[in-house]
Amino acid sequence: MGFKLLSKLLVYLTASIMAIASPLAFSVDSSGEYPTVSEIPVGEVRLYQIADGVWSHIATQSFDGAVYPSNGLIVRDGDELLLIDTAWGAKNTAALLAEIEKQIGLPVTRAVSTHFHDDRVGGVDVLRAAGVATYASPSTRRLAEVEGNEIPTHSLEGLSSSGDAVRFGPVELFYPGAAHSTDNLIVYVPSASVLYGGCAIYELSRTSAGNVADADLAEWPTSIERIQQHYPEAQFVIPGHGLPGGLDLLKHTTNVVKAHTNRSVVE
């Protein structure tokens, strides 16, 4: 069995187990497998329904001669939608809004960016022009300005110390501490036991640490421990890039980060 097929099978099995364990909360999309990078042309966006009122959005972007996937989250909030992270750029984010209108038909009224990198804030200006209120932590807003990236308009308070959590509509926002970046936030959907790890969490097929220019490698494993301790009931975990899975993604990420750190020390 090929690795790609095995990865998709694991996603399907995880979703099936969740649907059985929580039949009222989960209505997993039966329309197909989780979209992969090879299936999404740059400039297009796919939506994948995880649970009743919960979707991931998947886009792709060219970077350094390669094409990478990027995940975000959409959560229903009454007759409105909360968006977590842009679709990595203005063109993708405009396509995301169009796809949401086509498939869901509810307005996106608020959006949260989970850290300051372009795959999370690139497209904020498109959201703002569409009347979406954009939010991020003060740290993310400051770092985005320093980096020359787009800056969300509103500040999220109460997320300055490791372990801080605040309720934001249908989700809980959690600051686990520094990891992929010093400002990275985690998003949890309690009604569906869905954990969105953003770039602080890796997919299972990833074996290298990737972009760690703004990471705190020493603190990252401790931050992941905080996530595990705060959300032990999480059933569906979405990484910032690639295929979702279960809580095993947290341990896998820790292993990859520690291996990278150990290699760096040896070198």
Rank of each mutant, 00 (worst) to 15 (best):
G148L: 11
G148H: 08
D118C: 09
T207Q: 12
E225G: 12
Q235P: 05
T182F: 10
I84H: 00
T86A: 14
A21H: 15
S38T: 09
G163Y: 10
A192G: 07
A51R: 08
C199V: 00
K258L: 13
S16R: 15
T153G: 12
T207W: 08
A136S: 08
T36Q: 10
S113G: 10
G131N: 14
D77H: 11
L5Y: 08
K251N: 05
S7Q: 06
A15P: 07
V121W: 00
L156S: 02
N71A: 13
T36F: 12
L247A: 10
G65T: 06
G169K: 03
P190C: 03
V126T: 14
D118I: 15
I74H: 00
S193A: 10
E44T: 12
L24E: 12
Y34M: 14
I224M: 13
A90Q: 08
R263T: 09
H241Q: 01
D183G: 02
V11S: 10
H180P: 01
E44L: 14
H115L: 01
L247C: 13
G43H: 12
P190Y: 04
I74Q: 01
Q103W: 11
R128L: 05
A19Q: 14
E233F: 14
G169C: 04
R120D: 14
P107F: 09
P35A: 09
N71M: 01
C199H: 00
I40G: 12
I224S: 01
E145F: 07
R46V: 13
A234I: 06
M18Q: 05
V28M: 06
V146I: 13
L97V: 04
L249N: 04
A90H: 11
W220Q: 01
Q229F: 11
L143S: 12
S205D: 06
Q49F: 10
K91T: 12
Y231G: 01
V237G: 01
V108P: 15
P232K: 10
D77W: 10
E99H: 15
W55R: 01
G89A: 02
E99A: 13
E225K: 06
P232L: 07
H241P: 01
S30I: 11
L127A: 04
A98L: 09
S62C: 10
G43Q: 11
R128A: 13
R46T: 07
Y202W: 06
V189T: 04
L5S: 07
L83P: 00
V171N: 01
A136Y: 03
D125H: 15
A178K: 11
V132A: 09
G2P: 10
N184A: 01
W88A: 01
G240H: 04
G242L: 02
S139G: 10
S22H: 13
I58Y: 12
I74V: 11
L247F: 05
H260P: 12
L97I: 04
K251P: 15
I224R: 01
P221C: 12
V171S: 04
L185K: 01
E39P: 11
E101D: 10
M1Y: 03
I17Y: 06
S155N: 07
T253F: 00
S113Y: 04
F116S: 11
I84G: 01
K4I: 14
G122Q: 10
L106N: 15
I201P: 03
V54A: 12
I20F: 06
D52S: 09
V45E: 03
G53D: 14
P221H: 07
V189Y: 06
S139H: 10
V266W: 14
S162K: 07
T109M: 12
L97P: 03
A94M: 13
L156R: 02
T114E: 00
H180Q: 02
A95G: 11
P190Q: 06
L82A: 12
N149P: 14
V212I: 08
T153S: 08
H241T: 00
S113D: 04
F26Y: 08
S223Q: 03
A213I: 09
R142S: 14
A51N: 15
T254W: 12
N149A: 10
V132I: 14
Y188G: 01
Q228I: 05
L81M: 08
V45N: 15
A25H: 15
V146Q: 11
N149S: 09
S193W: 08
D77V: 05
H260E: 12
D118G: 08
L10R: 09
A218P: 12
R167E: 06
V126K: 13
D214A: 11
V212K: 11
V187G: 05
S264M: 12
L47D: 03
H230R: 10
V187F: 02
K4T: 09
R110Y: 06
G242D: 03
E33N: 07
V11M: 13
H241A: 01
R76T: 07
N255E: 11
A111N: 15
S31Q: 15
E267F: 06
P107C: 04
V67Y: 07
E147T: 13
K91D: 15
Y48R: 08
V171P: 03
H260M: 14
T93V: 00
G163W: 09
G2N: 08
Q103D: 13
A215V: 06
T134E: 03
I151S: 08
R120F: 01
Y202A: 08
V108M: 11
N255H: 06
S155V: 15
S205H: 05
H117R: 00
A51M: 14
A25T: 08
A111I: 05
E157K: 06
A209C: 09
A130F: 14
I224T: 04
A66D: 09
I100C: 02
P176V: 01
V75S: 03
N255K: 15
I186T: 07
G105R: 11
L97M: 05
I40P: 15
V171I: 13
E219D: 12
V37C: 09
G122Y: 06
L127K: 01
P244G: 06
V237C: 05
L9W: 08
Y12I: 15
S223I: 05
H180Y: 04
E145L: 11
G122T: 08
G2Q: 06
V256F: 04
S7L: 05
D216T: 11
V212L: 12
S30K: 15
I74L: 08
W88C: 00
S161P: 06
A15Q: 15
E145I: 11
S223L: 03
S155R: 11
P152M: 03
R141G: 05
S161V: 14
I50Y: 07
L106M: 13
N262T: 07
G131Q: 10
T253R: 01
V166T: 08
I74P: 01
N255V: 14
L249A: 02
V266T: 11
T60L: 14
A94R: 12
V132Y: 00
G43M: 08
L13V: 10
L243V: 06
D119M: 01
C199L: 01
S160T: 14
D216A: 11
T207R: 09
L156K: 03
I227A: 12
A179P: 02
A51W: 09
K91H: 14
N211H: 14
K251T: 10
G65W: 10
T114F: 00
L156F: 13
G242I: 02
S223T: 06
A25R: 07
L106P: 04
M18G: 06
T60I: 05
A165I: 06
M1L: 04
A98V: 09
P69Q: 15
V237S: 01
I238C: 03
R167N: 06
T222E: 12
P152C: 02
G72Y: 03
H241L: 01
R110K: 07
K251W: 08
N92D: 03
D119F: 00
A25S: 14
H230L: 09
N71Y: 02
I40M: 07
T261K: 05
G177V: 01
A179M: 06
A178I: 07
S160P: 13
L250C: 04
